[in-house]
């Protein structure tokens, strides 16, 4: 099996501090993501969920602390080490972030060409496979991103994120903006892919149903650090006003009863 499964934590964040000028987003933030789990990160608006994701994938340099992915500190690594880490993860940005000048299939083929130098028929077959796996119809392959609906863009973005068979996938609000049926299908898709491909998933979300349906563990961001982390049941016990309101509010209860039924 792959080398990463030897160590338990795929992501290790220690003492993370990020800030924009004087505004501190995170302070003394610790977080572990274990191999093979779906970690859901929740928090109120402006608690820096997306910033945390950006810090982990190397887009926002922390002002203190370390971020290790696959035992590699991305910000200390040289070009070659970075590239090898980048090949092992896939990222789905909030809006899909598809390249607008390429068709969906070409979007999926782009990382194959860049990283693996796979081209021609093999690349086309691989793109078709990924597009089918994320539940898009075959006709979607030749469409440009501007012709797609929001849900299809997310699926196409996921297909691109999965192009290199990553071990770790980052999802930024994967179900935001989808209708409940589409969102439920997306949750199911992620769980399915995780099972069949052995993925580790780091997911930023607002969606309580997604937390119930998909996530193995949940980390709650509040007051600039991880306030609670564990299974959904553990986290729900935490005595913190925001957490209580979040999980025990009307929507939290609705999601819970939906899960129970």
């Amino acid at each position: 099996m792959s080398a990463s499964s030897k160590h338990k934590n795929v992501i290790e964040v220690r003492g993370l501090r990020t800030q924009f000028d004087d505004f501190v987003v995170h302070n003394e933030l610790d977080l572990d993501v274990r191999t093979g789990e779906i970690m859901g990160v929740v928090g109120g608006s402006g608690t820096g969920k997306s910033v945390l994701m950006r810090a982990i994938i190397g887009l926002k340099r922390p002002s203190a602390g370390t971020v290790k992915v696959f035992d590699q500190d991305f910000y200390e690594a040289n070009e070659k080490e970075r590239l090898s880490v980048e090949r092992r993860w896939g990222v789905l940005f909030q809006g899909g972030a598809l390249f607008s000048s390429l068709t969906v299939a070409q979007n999926v083929m782009a990382p194959l060409r860049e990283h693996l130098h796979v081209e021609g028929e093999l690349a086309k077959d691989m793109a078709a496979l990924k597009i089918s796996m994320v539940g898009l119809p075959a006709e979607a392959g030749s469409k440009y991103p501007s012709e797609l609906s929001g849900g299809m863009k997310k699926r196409a973005g996921l297909a691109r994120a999965l192009a290199l068979d990553p071990e770790l996938v980052f999802l930024d609000e994967p179900t935001a903006g989808l209708d409940p049926i589409g969102a439920a299908k997306f949750d199911e898709l992620i769980v399915n892919l995780k099972e069949s491909l052995g993925l580790t998933v780091f997911m930023v979300t607002h969606d309580l149903d997604t937390l119930h349906a998909a996530c193995d563990r949940v980390a709650v961001l509040a007051e600039k650090h991880v306030k609670a982390c564990g299974t959904l049941d553990d986290v729900r016990q935490t005595d913190h006003p925001w957490i209580q309101e979040y999980f025990s509010g009307p929507r939290g209860r609705a999601a819970l009863s939906a899960k129970a039924s």
Binding site: M1, A138, S142
Partner: peptide, 22 residues
């Protein structure tokens, strides 16, 4: 086991798709 699970997963997704508009 892992390999056959993966093979099964792939089985239904072999149809080619369009790459470029016609």
């Amino acid at each position: 086991e892992a390999q056959s699970a993966l093979m099964d997963q792939i089985k239904d997704h072999l149809a080619p798709c369009h790459i470029m508009p016609l």
